[in-house]
Design a binder for these strands. Structure first.
Lengths: 106, 106
DNA sequence: CAGACGTGCAACCTATTGGTTGCACGTATA
DNA sequence: TATACGTGCAACCAATAGGTTGCACGTCTG
């Protein structure tokens, strides 16, 4: 998951798809890399659960699924909570490891 | 920064240091990798601004500095805000301070 | 039907990464 | 002073990642 966000191009792609769903070919025209590279990146994001493939006719449209981001925020809040006031507050909303509702950490 | 968190060992190290400051040699004894590998990981975390070196006599103690985590949370809130209710709330607390985003939504 | 277009698959190349080992250097301490 | 201990530096290695190109396949459309 963090691995998926580690690459700058991947973050750009995620931000773009977050704006509005798009296909690999479309996204490739906005980046200085080939379509195949974009496909690989999108696959990585999809493997991390951040994207969802949606076939429509002969094209494949990618849509965002932000749940993993919440998990990541939860982890960061847990790790940094005792050092940062704002992060500490988050630990209540975003529980550790995918807790959906207001589970209390610790 | 996300790159620094991409590696599992690095996340474990950060969590450990978050618990209480420690030296590379200490941390290495808790992991199945060599001290040198730990040093490299700690350097990566330090380069990302997540850790701070603190020399004390002949040893070097690492301490956490969680500011970059807030930036990361800010980025995630911005990207996932329109899709996730909880993330949307964060965008107010953790502004786009320093966090660079790919594109503005349409 | 024929062709254009979007996609999937595979091979391949290079740079980076996570890991190791060996050794030199400075700082405590017996 | 002699020695142990924590650290820094460098070389090295195997695996992975990001990227490319080429081609085959399915699906629209004139």
């Amino acid at each position: 998951m963090f691995n998926a966000l580690a690459d700058p191009n991947r973050r750009r792609l995620l931000a773009a798809v977050a704006g509005s769903p798009a296909t690999a070919t479309e996204l490739a025209s906005d980046l200085p890399i080939s379509r195949q590279a974009v496909v690989k990146h999108l696959s990585a994001l999809a493997d991390a659960g951040l994207l969802e493939r949606e076939r429509r006719g002969r094209e494949v449209r990618y849509r965002m699924t932000p749940e993993p981001l919440s998990d990541a925020v939860g982890w960061m809040a847990e790790v940094g909570g005792q050092w940062d006031q704002r992060l500490a507050g988050l630990a209540r909303t975003f529980g550790p490891s995918g807790a959906q509702r207001g589970e209390m950490p610790r």
